[in-house]
Design a protein around this nucleic acid. Structure first.
Lengths: 140, 140
DNA sequence: TATTGTTATACTCTATAACTATA
DNA sequence: TATAGTTATAGAGTATAACAATA
């Protein structure tokens, strides 16, 4: 197999990943806005304070106040006072929030699954290997 | 090689592509905002009208007016009257706009190239194959 | 005094509705 | 009258600065 330069591969692969990602974002009907989805995903494992969420998401505390307020109004998360520290508040997913999170993922996965139905067994094996490599690269 | 279900592969691959894409968007210093970059990329091959740009980018004509105005102020694109149809305007990249477009791509590609330096020759071959498949899937 | 969270205010990007110019 | 583009205005999301409550 012909092997292009590393720079060439980097460019092709980067563009392919970004195009796939863009199409998924555009075409998988959004139940919540991207910044809201991102916050909800952070809350899946455990409750977090608005400040922690702001830090993780690289936005200001006032912006996170607004985002959390929007999610509270929609019943997707709840605020709970910290009994230990009266200054703090914990934000956590509601049952409806968890459902919305899972439904959004299901729609996105379905977009990809539909495309994968048309490929050959050999190509599928290539993508299985690539998936593991890309996952590692994304977390480095 | 163990082959997971199609649904499983779809989910893993989708997540990997979106994570890669997200990190590139966050970590490759932005010379222009995402919506501005997207418009500039559309103008690389040929000049387009604001209406055509609005349609391609799925935004309203007034929003595109604003985006184009911002790019004009920064000297990255120019508006030119259509001599055939006085109602129309053509938007095209300036030399500086083309440079900015290329520099943005260079930074994004560099992010990926840095990650690819650490992988084995076998893994690289897998990614060469995957790149072609993903490019095809993204354009279907 | 330091920290957490919110409110006040302003800037940007988005949209719809209304307006101007041209076909 | 239909179309292209812009301007007017409003609704979100972002930010910084200022404020209230708690440690």
């Amino acid at each position: 197999m012909y092997s292009p330069s590393l720079a060439h591969l980097a460019s092709d692969l980067r563009l392919a990943c970004m195009r796939i990602s863009r199409r998924i974002r555009f075409e998988s009907t959004q139940l919540v806005a991207p910044h809201q989805f991102s916050v909800m995903a952070r809350l899946e494992d455990k409750a977090l304070t608005p400040r922690a969420l702001a830090s993780i998401e690289c936005v200001s505390p006032p912006s996170m106040t607004r985002t959390v307020s929007g999610l509270v109004e929609r019943g997707l998360v709840v605020r709970q006072d910290d009994p230990q520290d009266g200054r703090q508040v914990f934000v956590s997913l509601t049952a409806q929030g968890l459902l919305t999170l899972k439904e959004t993922r299901r729609k996105r996965d379905a977009w990809m699954a539909t495309r994968l139905k048309g490929i050959s067994a050999e190509e599928r094996e290539v993508l299985v290997g690539a998936s593991a490599i890309l996952t590692r690269l994304a977390s480095e």
